[in-house]
Each structure stands twice: as structure tokens, then as C-alpha cells.
Write a protein that binds this DNA or RNA. Structure first.
Lengths: 124, 124
DNA sequence: GTAGTATATTGACAATTGTCGATGTTCAAC
DNA sequence: GTTGAACATCGACAATTGTCAATATACTAC
């Protein structure tokens, strides 16, 4: 529909890669960068998504959707909802194996997120 | 009412100090710690609050409430609302000077938040 | 005391979000 | 082709959130 932006193809980790260039303590954070940063924090602003990230941080292998339902006590659509939100924020990787969808923590996600908070990030 | 917890006294930075002990990548994050961590991220999950933190990060002196209204384009009650939310999360310091209320970024707030994201934080 | 000013709080409202049942999609196995 | 299974999407709903006008609170100056 809208050919205005070239950013629609992957969508994965677009938020994070956009936000990682504008640290919280940068000289000046404009409207758009503030929205990008807020979207990033919004991805972690839910207890269930925090636990998902924690589970993935302790897993040495990708985890499929059905594995989250029991420990989180959530229905399958709800788990998909949270995983999609984390994936769209660029924090998770998605891998399709047959009918299964395996999610894993993006390798540099947490480190880059920490860099956003680094006071030195804006003025090296 | 509930004498079960001793955490009710200050409220200021209780969230942060509680969450900083439970990094995202800790061996296991339970329900309560997940809520504490999510509350912390929730504080930054809004563009206006991101800009407030950014403005304070670049200010070498505390800033009073009225100074935020114009750059953010928000009414005074809305500014107070956001400042209170950041303050309750332990990210901001509040200092009363006469009728004015001066807010400043908590010295170690961002650094401790970054520590929450540090993968080494849980298993040194 | 009164008047004026800076913040906080309240009340109401629109917008967003989390949740789940029901329905689609997509793949493997037959 | 059909069936079954895993996941995504849709629709609806309750709960939360951001916003501001109106009001309350607290302080200074008179």
C-alpha cells in the first residue's frame, strides 16, 4: 500500500537497530527517536514477556511456542502474541522447523539494549 | 494494612533496587521478580518519559516541573503524572525548593538498569 | 489573615493492551 | 486428495494507560 518506506520488508529487529543509535543519554532525543526507544522498552514492559526472555536466556537451544504455555500459564494465542511482540522489537529470533516455530534470544539483543542505557553511548 | 512486607516505607526507587537484584538473564526469574522488572521497563515505555530522562541526562542541574511543559508540549498535570511515574520507579530524584519541585536523574539509575540487562549479571 | 503561584491529585474520557475462544494457515503423514 | 497438529490471526472483552480541565494542597509574599 504505502511505498513510502523500505522498512517494511523484515520488520524484525528494526526497532532495536533504530533505537540502538539513539542512546537515552544522547545530546538530544527527538520525537521519533523517543518513540523508537519507548517501543523498545514497551517490549519488556510486561511480566510474561520478561519471563519469556529469561527462559530463553537460560536455554541453550531455541524453544518452540508450546514450551512456553505451561510455565507461563497462558493460552497458545496469548503466547504467540507476546512472542510476536518481542520478535517485532528485534529481541527474538524466529526459526521455522516444519510446523513448529522455534524462538531464541537474539545474540546481541540484551547487550545492545544495555548500550542504549549507557551514559557514554551518546558522547564517546 | 499488610504487615507482610517492609517495602512500603519510601516507595522511591524501591522498584529499581528490587529489580536490580534480579537480572533478566538470571538463572530463574519468578512471578514477583518478573513483575518488578516489568514495572521498571514500564517506566521507560513512553516517548514522553524517554524524553524526560534524556532532558535530565543532559542537564547539569535539577530541573523544575514547569521547565518540561514547553519542550514536551504537555499540560502541567500530565508532566506531573510522568515525573511521578519515573520517581516511583526509582529513576528520578525529587527535591523541594519552596513551591518548586526539582527533579534530577538518579545518579546510578541508568547504570543499574543496564546491569539488569547484563547477561553476566546473573552468573558471575 | 489574603492573594498569588507551583505542584499534586481527582475525575472523566479516548486509546491502548493483555487475554482467550474461535477461526485461518501451513506443514507432515497418510 | 484428507486428517491431524502447531502456530498465527481475528473478534470481543476487561483492564490499564495517557491526557487534560477542574480542584486541592502547600508555599511565599504581603
Amino acid at each position: 500500500m504505502s511505498p513510502a518506506s523500505t522498512v517494511r520488508s523484515t520488520d524484525t529487529q528494526q526497532r532495536l537497530s533504530a533505537a540502538c543509535c539513539y542512546p537515552l543519554a544522547a545530546p538530544e532525543v527527538g520525537r521519533d527517536q523517543a518513540v523508537a526507544l519507548a517501543d523498545l522498552f514497551k517490549a519488556l514492559a510486561d511480566p510474561n514477556r520478561v519471563r519469556i526472555v529469561n527462559l530463553l536466556a537460560n536455554a541453550d537451544e531455541p524453544v518452540c511456542v508450546c514450551e512456553f504455555m505451561e510455565p507461563l500459564g497462558l493460552a497458545q494465542p496469548t503466547v504467540s502474541f507476546h512472542l510476536a511482540k518481542l520478535h517485532r522489537a528485534g529481541l527474538l529470533r524466529r526459526e521455522q522447523r516444519g510446523t513448529w516455530a522455534y524462538y531464541s534470544l537474539h545474540p546481541t539483543a540484551l547487550a545492545r539494549l544495555a548500550q542504549v542505557l549507557d551514559p557514554e553511548g551518546g558522547t564517546p
